[in-house]
Design a protein around this nucleic acid. Structure first.
Length: 806
RNA sequence: GCCCGGGUGGCGAAACGGCAGACGCAAGGGACUUAAAAUCCCUUGGGAAGUAAUUCCCGUGAGGGUUCGAAUCCCUCCCCGGGCACCA
């Protein structure tokens, strides 16, 4: 690398960037004093998983977009805290370690070192003093602490449940990690169902709050929609179907208005009542069916054939509305995990029930009749009830409330809300994670590890391979899991599962400001000052994982008195994805963009700006190699302008354009419209170049450099220095926008005749409608189209347009 | 099937309901150069008329509608991307 950059006449990005990266570190330019900061602004980007492949262009896109915003806020006078860390525990890291047969404890520090170097090279305004890694015992001590808080309050529970088991990862997965029945990490491996004892966080208790708060937090709509869908709220009723045994069948339905058409009842095969209800002569068939279903894996059950199968139990239940006896069936299209695990089947008005009734020849009784007689099943709402006793003629919508109330009066039902959201399974039968801080004692039962004994260190073991047993590799480390019970001192054993990576990332933003403290997870005062996060930018792939879990944990910690806010991210924006040649980047497609290569060739600043110039930040873009030269040309021109800049002066037009540009660039960056912010600066530079023969006035160039600083920080620093400033450009402030100076002195008004453009007139801004119309009508070109017809109507849009209707 | 996005020149894309295509790439022409690269200047949605300045017509996935005026709003449909999905 050359070291003569400050004398060179041409822009040499490598030298400039190296110089400023050193300076920033020496002068601690990017560090903010968290205690003293007067205008705190917490600018967060999603910390990366430090993969062996190094920084991906998608990471760069995400981080740069966030960094630009942080740097902009800093220039606006905020004390911006922009931390970064590493999501280094978890299955991704561990699977890779297995693949290359190297211990993750050895790999991870290596990967992190490389990431750190790459992140520096990109020129992020990262406050390195607050870097964290989830694998650091000083961090995961507090991850375990979070678990204990939830455990104490009953929000962490151990229960046996059907869970997703990935035979490749050899661990259970959260529902959010199962994609179309396949493992998120192994797209070729079907997830199967196992019935295991697992630790769950009771996120479902917060379903309504997670939903309600979405209305009042400033998040990307796309992300909010994903969460709304995932929570899956359904309103309806729980209805009671009496049975010959003591316990009735409770069903959940969103269509209580159709209850008069319920001609049979279906239980999930796993439903506890099946055992007691099944008639003796049906027992053989029922048991056989239940066995088949139990052996079926989740794929076959969920996405496999939708052909309806099922078995009659031989028992009957009483329809609460009609009082009639209806047969009770079991079928795998009814899922135990949702609702009550039982449904009333209304074949005339539900597609699945219709299919099932057709297959097994069960009665189909229509109870709603649309005006134009439609085919069955009719599942719409725009119709009235028939064959429904006193409710005949009631509209469907009205009948929902009326029938629910009527049944409620007889204790046969009540209004009910259900959610699709499941409790969050956090147990992982793996090695590379924080051990769950629980001890099992024969005498005392389940005993939480006392907080003073945290962290429960992950033991260093050579053999960290998972196996088929369904227990963690830690279960093979006897000297580790055998411990005395913290309560009675008797021989006891540790929980050998580790926790999900998403528990690590569910609270990391709380730790950043406080990671100097080893005696508390987050300092009360610092947390009050810096949180919640002001702006969080990241990908929508985490909409229902990390972003949902973080909200839940924040709410839980709030309810337990640890935080005084319940939503962690005041403003969240989802960035788009970068694709290559119209397709997602992947190693198998061979279309992976390696950022380092482009940075080496063009410089980090050019690469940063080019990524932002590809398209709207929140939509992403298609990466192409051609086009990047345009950004470099632009920077070269600015560079030349800086070299020549001197004196004062400049045309009115140039000053006007400057102020218009300040306005546009500011509002564009605020709205993350980086592509148009860059265009605006290009237009300004084009105007300066075309506008004057000699060098540009310093006063016209300096604000441009400040505006460029968030996007091209090293470049801007170097230009700023060349413009004879001693301090960093980031000590400067965002240029003031002057409305008066931005105002045009003469404007062009479009003249339309019958909505078609027929001419243009020059006028002073603020011209009256009367004058504008008079001048417009007098324009010869316009006159041609008016002929001698009478003007019937005129439309005037102030300073923009006149439309003459003839 | 349901819920979000999106569809505009050769390409990436702009456009508070008001001049469609800003800005950039690529392409073509020119200047500089022995030459090339770099740089600088000009042209560039399609079609037609004119020696020309210029003018006219068509054009934002398709078809309807609202409006003085629609890429933008409404309805129907097609295609692409993402999410959910036997969820009662």
């Amino acid at each position: 690398m050359t070291d003569t950059s400050s004398q060179a006449a041409v822009y040499d990005p490598a030298a400039v960037e190296d110089k400023w990266q050193r300076r920033w570190e020496e002068a601690r330019t990017n560090s903010v004093d968290l205690q003293r900061a007067a205008r705190p602004f917490y600018n967060l980007m999603m910390y990366p998983y430090p993969s062996a492949e190094g920084l991906h262009v998608g990471n760069v896109f995400a981080f740069v977009g966030s960094d630009i915003y942080g740097r902009y806020r800093r220039l606006c006078g905020y004390d911006v805290f922009e931390p970064i860390g590493f999501d280094a525990f978890g299955i991704h890291s561990e699977n890779y370690a297995l693949k290359v047969n190297t211990h993750p404890a050895e790999l991870i520090p290596r990967n992190i070192a490389r990431f750190r170097q790459q992140l520096r090279r990109v020129g992020l305004m990262v406050n390195w003093d607050h870097e964290l890694s989830t694998t650091d015992p000083a961090y995961y001590k507090w991850t375990q602490w979070v678990f204990l808080q939830l455990y104490r309050s009953g929000m962490a529970v151990k229960k046996a449940a059907p869970v997703n088991w990935c035979p490749e990862c050899k661990t259970v997965l959260a529902n959010e990690q199962v994609i179309d029945g396949f493992c998120e990490r192994h797209p070729e491996t079907a997830v199967s169902q196992r019935f295991l004892e697992q630790w769950f966080f009771t996120i479902t208790k917060y379903a309504q709050r997670l939903l309600d708060n979405l209305e009042r937090i400033d998040w990307s709509d796309s992300t909010r929609m994903l969460q709304i869908n995932w929570i899956g709220r359904s309103e309806g009723a729980e209805l009671v179907f009496a049975t010959p045994v003591a316990e009735p069948i409770r069903v959940f339905t969103t269509r209580p208005d159709t209850v008069f058409g319920a001609t049979y009842v279906v239980l999930a095969p796993e439903h506890p009542l099946v055992e007691t209800l099944t008639a003796a002569e049906q027992r053989g068939e029922v048991n056989a069916y239940r066995r088949t279903v139990a052996e079926m894996d989740i794929v076959a059950r969920r996405i496999g054939s939708k052909d309806k199968t099922g078995v009659f139990t031989g028992a009957y239940a009483r329809n609460p509305a009609t009082g009639e006896s209806v047969p009770i069936w079991i079928a795998d299209y009814v899922l135990m995990e949702y609702g009550t695990g039982a449904i009333m089947a209304v074949p005339a008005h539900d597609e699945r029930d219709f299919e099932f009734a057709t297959a097994f020849d069960l009665p189909i009784v229509p109870v709603i009749e649309p005006d134009d007689s439609q085919e069955l099943p009719y599942t719409g709402w725009d119709a009235k009830l028939v064959r429904s006793g006193q409710f005949d003629g009631t509209s469907c919508r009205a009948a929902v409330g009326a029938i629910t109330q009527w049944l409620e009066g007889q204790s046969l039902g009540r209004g009910e809300v259900r959610y699709r959201l499941h409790d969050w399974c956090i147990s992982r039968q793996r090695y590379w994670g924080p051990p769950i801080p629980i001890i099992y004692c024969d005498a005392c039962g389940t005993v939480p590890v006392p907080e003073k004994d945290l962290p429960v260190l992950l033991p260093a073991v050579d053999d960290f391979r998972p196996d088929e047993t369904g227990v963690s590799p830690l279960a093979r480390v006897e000297e580790w899991y055998r411990v005395p019970c913290p309560q009675c001192g008797a021989d006891a054993r540790r929980e050998t599962d580790v926790s999900d990576t998403f528990l690590d990332s569910g609270w990391y933003f709380l730790r950043y400001p406080s990671n100097d403290f080893d005696d508390r997870p987050f300092d009360a005062e610092l947390t009050k000052k810096w949180l919640p996060v002001d702006t969080y930018i990241g990908g929508n792939e985490h909409a229902v994982l990390h972003l949902m879990y973080s909200r839940f944990l924040t709410m839980a910690l709030h309810d337990l008195g640890h935080l005084d806010f319940e939503e962690p991210f005041t403003r969240f924006r989802a960035h788009g994805t970068i694709v290559k040649d119209g397709a997602k980047m992947s190693k198998s497609r061979g279309n992976v963009v390696i950022p380092d290569q482009h940075i080496a060739k063009w410089g980090a600043d050019t690469f940063r700006m080019y990524l932002m110039f590809l398209g709207p930040y929140q939509e992403g873009g298609d990466f192409r190699d051609d086009g990047i030269s345009g950004i470099r040309r632009f920077l070269d021109r600015v560079w030349a302008m800086v070299e020549e800049a001197n004196g004062t002066g400049g045309s009115d037009e140039a000053w006007r354009k400057l102020h218009q540009t300040i306005r546009k660039v500011g509002t564009d960056i605020e709205g993350l419209r980086y592509n148009t912010a860059i265009s605006a600066m290009m237009e300004y530079v084009n105007l300066l170049r075309g506008n004057m023969a000699g060098p540009a006035a310093k006063g016209l160039v300096e604000p441009l450099i400040v505006m460029l600083a968030p996007l091209a920080p090293h470049f801007a620093e170097e230009c700023w220095e060349r413009l004879a400033h001693d301090a960093s450009v980031f000590e400067a402030s965002w240029p003031d926008f002057d409305e008066a100076l931005a105002r045009e002195v003469e404007i062009e008004i479009v003249v339309q005749v019958n909505g078609k453009v027929r001419g243009r007139i020059q006028a002073a801004p603020g011209i009256s409608e009367e004058d504008a119309v008079r001048v417009a009508a007098a324009d010869p070109q316009v006159h041609k189209f008016l002929g001698n017809k009478e003007i019937r109507k005129t439309i005037y849009v102030k300073d923009r347009l006149v439309n003459l209707v003839v």
